[in-house]
């Protein structure tokens, strides 16, 4: 049975697209078939982060409006066979998304993949609404920072009222993915701690992604971080999160970079 997952946050720039690419690749790395869908119509970026920007011919809007079929629009990842991308349109307006069209496309994707991961645009308007509309579960990407936490709270309210699942009277499962986390700064008292954010939002925790230069390096190269450098700290955090999504019990840790021999000698900083 296919699972439809929405990656959302309300606030922009917190790591939705990075996390969609990383979780999608991580799930595919465990052997699942995965389709990542970009709902950010007009401002697409998932193609770029995945390194598929030059392979886009047809997009979500073309399929929604019946101008192309899924086979024409889906882009299969060159590194992992079981990972595909359905890009957003760069030229069209988000008003081109229709309720019936989105429902049909999600239905077709569910017949083909184990996981459909919908990358939501920022904000709470049409694109975000359609990205969450058919979700079975939601990953809320949040930075340990006041404006991000506030916007996540708002999105949680919408997930509990505006989705198909909520309208059927069912409870939407909501999981926190805390990104750009710095254990040192949280320990010093200069950053909200994991427990603070969990308590304020009162949802369960999917994973903690440490702040890391590896994330930027991976996007520079057009690769999900879990493929660009699988042993880096953020990659291990995403890979753990993907295993949790599959129902495995994985101890919750904040991975740190493994330093080599020289790193151990010279790389230690006084905390």
């Amino acid at each position: 049975m296919a699972e439809v997952l929405v990656v959302t946050s309300g606030k922009g720039g917190v790591g939705k697209t990075t996390s969609t690419a990383a979780l999608g690749a991580a799930l595919a790395q465990t052997g699942q078939s995965v389709c990542v869908v970009d709902f950010d119509v007009g401002l697409r970026n998932l193609d770029l982060v995945m390194g598929a920007e030059r392979r886009v011919v047809y997009d979500l809007i073309n399929v929604v409006q019946g101008d192309a079929n899924l086979n024409q629009a889906l882009i299969r990842d060159k590194r992992i066979d079981s990972l595909s991308l359905l890009p957003a349109s760069q030229t069209r307006d988000k008003d081109a998304l229709t309720a019936e069209g989105v429902e049909r496309v999600i239905g077709e994707l569910k017949n083909r993949f184990d996981w459909i991961i919908c990358d939501s645009p920022a904000g709470i308007e049409r694109g975000a609404y359609f990205a969450m509309r058919h979700a079975d579960l939601a990953v809320i990407v949040t930075n340990p920072e006041v404006s991000s936490v506030r916007d996540s709270d708002r999105i949680i309210g919408l997930l509990d009222s505006k989705t198909e699942k909520a309208e059927r009277g069912e409870v939407m499962e909501k999981l926190l993915l805390l990104t750009r986390y710095s254990p040192e700064r949280a320990e010093r008292g200069d950053m909200l701690k994991v427990e603070d954010v969990l308590e304020i939002l009162s949802i369960s925790l999917l994973g903690i992604i440490p702040e890391s230069p590896e994330v930027l390096k991976a996007s520079n190269l057009g690769s999900p971080v879990t493929l660009a450098n699988p042993i880096s700290a953020p990659s291990r955090a995403y890979l753990d999160a993907a295993r949790r999504l599959r129902g495995e019990t994985v101890p919750m840790t904040v991975p740190t970079e493994r330093k080599g021999f020289l790193g151990n000698l010279f790389g230690r900083r006084a905390a």
Partner: peptide, 27 residues
């Protein structure tokens, strides 16, 4: 020097308690 995270936590808790009561449901 006082840490700033407790202030963030307190401000959020106050604000969200209010926003949930009033705007928690958009409809």
């Amino acid at each position: 020097r006082r840490s700033s995270a407790p202030a963030a936590r307190e401000r959020l808790q106050l604000l969200l308690a209010h926003e949930r009561a009033v705007f928690g449901r958009t409809d």
